[in-house]
Every structure is written in structure tokens, then in C-alpha cells.
Simulated assay, not measured.
Amino acid sequence: MKTKKVWFVTGASKGLGFTLVKKLLKEGFHVAATTRNADSLIKEIGDASELFLPLEVDLTDTSSVKASVEKSVAHFGRLDVIVNNAGYAQIGTLEELTDEEVKENFNVNVFGSLNVIRNVMPYLRNQKSGHIFNISSVGGLFGSFSGWGIYCSTKFAVAGFTEALAEEIKEFGVKATVVYPGYFRTDFLSKGSVRIPGQPVAEYTAARESENQHLNTINGNQANDPEKAAEVLIAVSREDNLPVHLLLGNDAYEILQNKIGILTRDAEQWKNYTLSTGL
């Protein structure tokens, strides 16, 4: 029987990451799971075992990430599938968010994933195989959400560097996929996973309406099932021809079509200006 793959999942104590880890273990995969507080993960799933390795990691600290990767390889002997899932939503308009709030969102959502990629790639490159899932968002496809500009920009960054990564690593037999989940019924919009601006500007009524809608209406009523998302990630990991882009949810598909329409209309409307710049 073929040995089950070894998965390395960040942000594993809640949301999609937690759901994925539970499903992977149920199916007999080996799982290294990172979180900021390993106690919560151990309480829910259990201590380290032949199949499971809980790791307390600060993803913004490259030495902490490096140590977690080394522990995972020492425990399981290899790594096969990496899921850069950790992240949080920072709500707030560009004017009202402080430099510190913006940098922290980028540190976790962008640089945390880059720290993981830098430290896992030597192993994947040497073994000539592996698959990296970088979890973006529908906010990485479409940024026209008032009060979500910084969060969306982090997710656009994830999409951009994954496209480049896929090209860079294919000569080693390693694949990369950027995942765009729509709204899934997890605790992503709960108080522990979303941050609001510390210095809100009252005049931004549209941003406050969007904030209230997400926290008080959308939260708990999302249309997509995280169990099914986990099943899709596992199923895709078994495919031979892996996608660079993977959308999850009817809403994600609709948002993509809307974005394509907007880009196409703008391109055609202003085509004369676009083509007027040649020498």
C-alpha cells in the first residue's frame, strides 16, 4: 500500500484549517499542524502521535517557522502537501488604518506564507515532488469592498506570488496552487479572527455598513460548507495535472465572472487611449 502523504497545515486551530486537519487525520494522512497556541489544538485533537504533530509557531518569525519545518521532517521523514492557511481579516479604510495595523496584516497574511515557502522548498526541491496550497480569498480576485482594501491587498499578493512560484518550482516537479475561497461557514468573521480599525473615521458610512454586515449578518450565515472545501483540497492534491488557480464556492465563481466583465468593459471603453501610446 502506498504511504499516505504528509501534510503541513498552518492556521490549524480554527476555521478551514481545523476542519482540514480533522478530515486528513480521519483519512489516515500524516499531519503537522501549526498554531499560535498549541494547547488549544492538543485539547481538540490530541498529543503528538504517529499521524499528528501539533506545533506552536510564530509564522512572522522565520526561525520559528524553520524550527517547525525541521521538527516535521524529523517526525515524519518528509513533507508532501503544504497549506498556507493562516491569516486574519483586517477591516478598515486606507485612511483610518495605522501603519502598524497594515503591517501586521501583511506580516501574517503575506510574509508568514513566504516564511513557510522559503523553509519547505529545500526539502520539496530535493525530493523532486510536493504541492503548495496558498489560501487567498475572493478578496484576492476582487477588491471593490469598502473597508476591506488592506485585507484584499494581502490576498492579491498571495495570488501574485503563487503564480510566480508555480513557474519557479515546476522544473523540480513541485506544484503551487492559489485557492480563492468564497464565504465559508467558519469562525473567520468572529471577533477572534477579524480586527476592526483602532481609530475609525465616522464619515466612512459605507465602510461601517460593510463592517456591520459582515460581523452581524454574514457571520454564521455563509453559504459554503468548510467540510466540502476540505474534501476538495484533498481530492485536488491527488490529481496529476494540478491547477494554479482554484476557486471554492458559487460566490467565488460569480465574483470572478463579475471581475472579468468589469475588466473587459473598461479595457474596451478606453481602448483608444490604451493603444495610443506606441512609438
Rank of each mutant, 00 (worst) to 15 (best):
E163N: 08
V73M: 14
A176F: 06
S68W: 12
N126H: 09
K228S: 13
Q257D: 09
F111Y: 08
L242H: 04
S193A: 09
I234D: 15
A38Y: 02
A166R: 15
L79N: 06
Y151W: 01
L248S: 01
R78V: 05
G112L: 09
L141N: 05
G87A: 12
E268V: 12
A252G: 11
S13K: 00
E209C: 08
E239H: 04
L246K: 05
E70M: 14
I91D: 14
F156C: 07
K170C: 08
I135G: 11
N126M: 09
L275C: 15
P200C: 15
A235Y: 04
V138R: 02
K43W: 00
K103C: 09
P200E: 15
G112W: 02
R185T: 10
F172N: 02
L59M: 07
N105E: 11
F145C: 04
S40I: 11
S144H: 08
L263P: 04
I234G: 12
N212M: 10
T34I: 07
G249S: 08
S129L: 10
E100H: 10
S40Q: 12
F29T: 08
D225M: 14
K22N: 10
G92Q: 11
G46W: 02
A267W: 15
A157E: 02
N84S: 05
G77I: 05
L20Y: 03
A89W: 10
A12I: 03
N216D: 13
G77R: 02
R185M: 08
F106S: 09
I260H: 06
I42K: 04
N219T: 00
F133Q: 08
P181F: 00
V174F: 03
V120R: 03
A252V: 06
N85T: 07
I117M: 07
L246I: 06
